[in-house]
Amino acid sequence: MKIMPCPLNGPRNISEFVYGGEVTPLPSVESAPDKAWAEHTFYAYNGTGVAREWWYHTPSGYWFVAERHRVSDEILRTYDPSELPSDESTPDGETC
């Protein structure tokens, strides 16, 4: 069983987690054109390297960020969303 180190709960089986997509900055709600929203919604980077991703720990209802290597699938680091730069955290800056 693969183990994910949850920042709130500690190491847990990967089956307790749900993938939530890549961490990407939200386009401006007021000024971004449709093309920017379409790219944000439907396009994803498909290369190698380190990915920064949202993950959800289901038993505790906790969202956090994980840095994972796309080639080796190794989880390099996990942390609370409050450690993200302000333009990349959740829209209202809410953390658990």
Partner: peptide, 12 residues
């Protein structure tokens, strides 16, 4: 406190 799965369901 542990928030984890127990007997395959989520629990606290």
């Amino acid at each position: 406190i542990a928030q984890t799965s127990i007997a395959r369901i989520n629990a606290i």
